[in-house]
Design a protein around this nucleic acid. Sequence first.
DNA 1: CGTGAGTATTTACGCATGTAAACATCGTTT
DNA 2: AAACGATGTTTACATGCGTAAATACTCACG
Lengths: 124, 124
Amino acid sequence: MMMISEAEAVVMDVLWREAPRTAEEILAEVGPAQNWQEGTVKSLLNRLLRKKAVHAERDGRRYLYRPLLKREQYVQQESKGLLDRLFDGRVAPLVAHFSEQRKLSKKDIAELRKLLKELDDEQS
Amino acid sequence: MMMISEAEAVVMDVLWREAPRTAEEILAEVGPAQNWQEGTVKSLLNRLLRKKAVHAERDGRRYLYRPLLKREQYVQQESKGLLDRLFDGRVAPLVAHFSEQRKLSKKDIAELRKLLKELDDEQS
DNA sequence: CGTGAGTATTTACGCATGTAAACATCGTTT
DNA sequence: AAACGATGTTTACATGCGTAAATACTCACG
C-alpha cells in the first residue's frame, strides 16, 4: 500500500478541503504557513501523481488537481497504524492513555458519552 | 525533540518489556519476526545510543542496554502527533472515526463506559 | 515566427532510514 | 604471544523525504 509522506499530506489536505485546485492556489493556501516555495509544492504534487494519490486534468496551460486518495482512507491507515503499533489494535487503551495524561477535554468527555449512548440505542 | 524511527521503536519495545538486555537477547527476540541480522540490531542500538534513547553499561565483553526514553513519553509523542494532524487535537473525533469504521469491539465499548464512569466518580 | 511569461517536469542535494557488510577490539584458548 | 571467537563500531548503500534550483514546455503577443 502506497504511503504518502507528511508534507504530501499537507497538500492533500488542501485538496480535501476543496477540489479541483491549481498548483498556484495550493501554494497560496499552504505556502505562507509552511514556508514553501513554488517548486516545493510542484514536487510534492508530482510525487502525489506518481503515487496515484491525485489526478491532474489539463486546463489550458495549467492543471487542475483533484484528490484520488480519500481522506477517510488516509485517516484510516494512519490511525490504524498507530493503534496497532502502540495500543495492540484496541481503542479503549488509547483513550485511557489520554485520560491518564489529562488530555480529555470537557467537550471530549461529553462527546464520548453521547457516542456511547448512540451505540447503545442503535444496538437495541 | 529527538524522534526515533519505527525500526528503532521495535528495539525499544523489547527493552520496555524487560531490561537490561544484551544485543544478543534483543536479536533473539526480534530477529525472527523482523527478519533482521545481527548487524541490523547493532546499528539500531547505536543510533538509539546516539539519540540518548538507551543507555549501555559494559558487562565483561558485552553491553547491557536499558531504555532511557520511557515508553510513556514515546506513546505520548506519537499519539499527540496523530491527534493533532488528523483530529484537530481532540480525542472524541478519533473515537468517532473508529466507531464509524465499526472498529470498536465489544470490549472497547465496555471499557470506554467504565472509563467514563470513573471520570464521573472522581469528578464529584 | 521568435520571445517572454506562466507552468510543469527534471534534477539535485543533504539528511534519515532500513539493512547489512566490513572492520576493530578484547578476552580466551593453544 | 598468536590466533580465535564474541561482541561492538564504522562504513556503506539504496530509498524516501523535504526542499528547491534548473530546465523544459506552452501559449499569447509583438
